[in-house]
Simulated scan of single mutants.
Amino acid sequence: MRLSRSLAFAALFLLSLTTASVAGPGRITLPAEVTATGQVIRLGDIAVLEGPATAALGDLTLGPAPAAGESRTLEGARVLDALRRAGADLAAITYTIPPVIRVRRASQEVSEAAVRQILEGFLAEALGAGAADAELKSVELPGPIRIPAGPYTARVVPPADRPLLGRVRLGLEFTVEDRPVKSVWVTADIGVYGPVVVATRAVARGDTLAAADLTTERRDLSQTGRSVLTDTVDAAGRIARAPLVPYTPVRRDQLVLPADIHRGDVVLLVAERGRLRITAPGEAREDGTRGQQVHVLNRLSRKDLVGHVVDGSTVAVDF
């Protein structure tokens, strides 16, 4: 009976010690694996602080946090040194601090859908009224995009030397809490739809195109090339330099203007310098259109010259 009473008394005594420890001036419990949420590691973010003696220690800075998705180690001895420098009364605080603490950064992954939404918003602003004719066909990411946890903004950096058409490499700059945190490159395939000129019939080389031979169709301009004509006015009356396939986009380099002068035509050669103007009869050595460089013969001196076509009967030459 006396033994049972002694055991009961001992158990009650141990229980009172545990209660006193919890209710003491303060306690710090720091796990071996923790997660930081901000740019710096604060004690209050990674440790459990209990009691009045630890109330002012929550903002104690222990060093910079690792980048999003990465980790770093923190020595327990350095944590104790930081507590001492902060004026903590370690004699009044019960603490559990491992020799080494692994600190990870709280992060989030920016999904492909989120990147697409960012790019679509950028295109709507950059293209203005033309955004209605644009389509973001695909987005290619360099890999998972991880940034620190929290609300973020993203800025799109377009290329300076090419239009937003076809496959375009775009920069993305992410900011969290007004601080730049990550920059990546993504590839966007941008389609812009608009009218292109097509021939409504098979056109042979040397044929002159009439307005009735042409129409426009709505096509993806990223698939047609930059030299494709978009207005039938730019094609009507021109001559095909090569056969044209029906309903295939017509390029500017496939057409030439009708010649204003032809080989063998008698033309007026004009040479001007200041107020001096000299004319002579000449002969065209080749076909040429207005503004084009051609070879001509001076019929008086029998010399071959080079000039530019002014109109159907005049060639300007230098002297």
Rank of each mutant, 00 (worst) to 15 (best):
R2V: 15
R5L: 14
S6M: 14
S6K: 14
A8C: 13
A11Q: 09
L12P: 00
L15H: 09
L15F: 15
L15Q: 12
L17C: 13
T18E: 14
T18V: 14
V22R: 13
G26C: 11
G26P: 00
R27G: 04
I28M: 06
A32T: 13
E33I: 08
V34R: 01
V34P: 00
A36N: 01
T37V: 12
Q39A: 15
R42M: 06
R42V: 09
L43S: 00
G44T: 07
L49T: 04
A56W: 10
G58S: 15
G58K: 13
A65R: 01
A67H: 10
A67E: 14
A68H: 02
S71P: 00
T73N: 11
A77W: 08
D81R: 14
L83S: 02
L83D: 06
R84P: 03
G87F: 07
A88I: 03
A88H: 11
I93K: 02
T94W: 07
P99L: 08
P99K: 10
R104S: 14
R105M: 13
A106H: 06
S107C: 09
S107R: 03
Q108C: 07
E109R: 11
V110W: 04
S111R: 05
E112M: 07
A113D: 12
R116L: 08
L119S: 04
G121H: 12
E125A: 15
L127M: 10
L127D: 04
G128E: 05
L136Q: 05
V139H: 03
V139P: 00
P142F: 10
P142T: 06
G143W: 08
I147Y: 01
P148H: 08
P148S: 04
P148Y: 02
A149R: 06
G150D: 07
G150P: 05
P151Y: 09
Y152E: 02
T153C: 05
R155A: 15
D161N: 14
D161K: 10
L165W: 09
L165T: 05
L170M: 11
L170P: 01
L170S: 02
G171Y: 14
G171W: 12
T175W: 06
T175M: 04
V176T: 08
E177R: 14
D178N: 12
R179V: 15
V181K: 03
K182Q: 13
K182N: 08
K182F: 03
W185V: 10
Y193K: 02
G194C: 05
P195T: 07
P195M: 11
V197D: 02
V198P: 00
V203M: 08
A204G: 11
A212Q: 14
A212G: 12
T215D: 12
R218G: 03
R219D: 05
D220E: 07
S222L: 04
T224L: 09
G225P: 00
T230A: 13
T230F: 06
A235F: 02
A235S: 08
A242G: 07
Y247S: 10
R251C: 11
V256I: 15
V256G: 09
L257A: 14
L257W: 12
G264N: 05
G264H: 10
D265E: 12
V267G: 00
V270I: 12
A271F: 02
A271T: 08
E272I: 12
I278H: 10
A280T: 08
E283G: 06
R285S: 07
G288N: 02
Q292I: 01
Q292A: 13
L297P: 01
L297T: 08
L305V: 05
G307P: 00
V309H: 00
V310K: 07
V310W: 11
S313H: 15
D318L: 11
